[in-house]
Amino acid sequence: MSSAKSFEQVRAEQLEYNAKRESGYRERALKLYPWICGRCAREFDRRNLSELTVHHVDHNHDNNPSDGSNWELLCLYCHDEEHSKFEAYVRYGSSKASKSKAATHQPFADLKANMEGSKD
């Protein structure tokens, strides 16, 4: 039971920390920017405002400049997509195509000569 209690305590502390952190920059971002998703252009009002999130462009949640230059408002779906792309970048590297060298192996170079030689 102690591990369950410690989990609940840690979870409560994390939720409290998240709420404090979000109350600051979320409220400022909602005052700075129109309530429109920056990717899909979906519009929001008070009824569905909870589905509009603040995305940190540099993925650093502690970088909250007062001018909002590190924020963009994204709907839940676009926010998830943005973080999925970032996780793929971290895991697999750049999404830009790397220039590969041209192939030099020519598997059929001597095919005709080999076929003519096998008829003997």
Rank of each mutant, 00 (worst) to 15 (best):
S98N: 07
S66M: 06
V57Y: 03
S94A: 05
S23F: 14
L111T: 12
N114K: 14
E27Y: 14
E43T: 13
G24Y: 12
V57D: 03
L52V: 04
R47Q: 09
V54E: 08
R91W: 01
L73I: 04
S66P: 09
S100I: 14
L73Q: 04
A97V: 11
N70R: 08
A97R: 14
Y92E: 06
E81K: 14
C40G: 07
C78A: 07
A41E: 15
R91P: 00
N63T: 07
H79M: 06
R28I: 08
K85G: 00
I36H: 05
H55T: 02
R91G: 01
S23A: 14
N64F: 07
Y33T: 02
L52D: 04
A29C: 11
G24S: 13
K31L: 10
I36K: 14
E16P: 00
E22H: 14
D62Q: 13
A109C: 01
S100N: 11
N48I: 08
D110N: 15
C75N: 04
L76P: 00
Y17Q: 11
S69E: 03
Y92C: 05
L73R: 05
E87T: 03
D45H: 11
F108D: 12
V57P: 00
D58M: 06
E13T: 08
P107C: 02
D67A: 08
W71T: 01
C40D: 08
Y89I: 01
E81H: 05
L111K: 15
H83L: 03
L52Q: 06
S84G: 08
E27I: 12
A102E: 09
E51W: 15
H59V: 00
V90W: 00
C75K: 05
A97I: 07
Y92L: 10
N114L: 12
T104F: 03
Y25I: 10
R47T: 11
E82W: 04
C40T: 06
W71N: 05
L32P: 06
H55P: 05
E81S: 12
C75T: 06
P65C: 09
K101L: 13
R47I: 02
G24P: 01
Q14R: 14
D67S: 08
S94Y: 02
K85T: 01
A109F: 05
C78T: 06
D67W: 11
N63V: 04
F108G: 09
P34H: 05
D110H: 10
D45R: 07
D58C: 08
I36M: 04
Y33A: 04
S100A: 10
S100T: 13
L73S: 07
S94L: 06
T104P: 00
H56R: 01
Y17W: 11
I36Q: 11
A103I: 10
E72K: 15
V54R: 03
D67H: 09
A29G: 09
Y25Q: 04
S23Y: 15
F86Q: 13
H61V: 10
Y77Q: 12
D110K: 13
